[in-house]
């Protein structure tokens, strides 16, 4: 099964030039990441949608347990999510514009903790590869426990002259068998 570079966990051995931690571009992107998490946690999905590029690719590949020699090929072409801009806006519309999107009504209480952010320059000026770690906790109704999800997100962010837009996101989840019953939330 072919694995694109975006579906491999990011490493520091990338041939791309890394943007220095604390530099202006790094800080802009870190600020974007924090804002994005805040918008999603607060269910401001219509505004979050304005963070998406119209050529968006958004995937959450299915993972398999393989022998250690195959650790780099644990991700498949099939996704838990396999989306583009149109399907993401349709998802947002269902969640915000209908009266019976029951998977998120009542809404989950979600926290997205985003850390370990690395940024690389790409061949395209103003476009950056960004890798981040995501720890997500989700609580619903009167559940005593939290459903948790940890993942690495490999993104491509594009500066459009005014703001960064998410053009590409591949979410590499650490679970083969997800512990939460659905992904009615965005990662």
């Amino acid at each position: 099964m072919s694995i694109s570079t975006e579906m491999k966990p990011a490493t520091t051995s990338s041939t791309l030039t890394e943007v220095t931690y604390g530099s202006p571009v790094y800080n802009q992107i870190m600020t974007w990441m924090i804002r994005e998490a805040r918008l999603l946690d607060h269910r401001q999905l219509d505004e979050w949608q304005t963070y998406l590029a119209e050529d968006l690719i958004y995937k959450v590949p299915v993972r398999l347990t393989r022998r250690v020699q195959g650790f780099d090929t644990e991700f498949s072409d099939v996704g838990h999510m396999d989306d583009d801009y149109g399907s993401m806006t349709a998802r947002v519309q269902r969640l915000t514009g209908t009266k019976s999107a029951w998977a998120e009504d009542p809404a989950s209480r979600v926290r997205r903790f985003v850390t370990n952010v690395s940024v690389w320059e790409t061949d395209i000026p103003g476009e950056y590869k960004v890798s981040s770690y995501l720890l997500l906790t989700r609580n619903r109704a009167d559940a005593r426990d939290y459903k948790q999800l940890s993942a690495e997100r490999n993104d491509r962010l594009r500066w459009n002259g005014e703001r960064y837009l998410l053009a590409h996101r591949i979410v590499l989840i650490d679970q083969v068998v997800l512990g939460m019953p659905n992904l009615a939330i965005f990662l």
């Binding site: 299915v62 068998v177 659905n182």
Partner: peptide, 10 residues
């Protein structure tokens, strides 16, 4: 089309 999705439902 690929390996199956798997998740746990309580």
């Amino acid at each position: 089309l690929g390996p199956p999705q798997r998740l746990t439902i309580d």
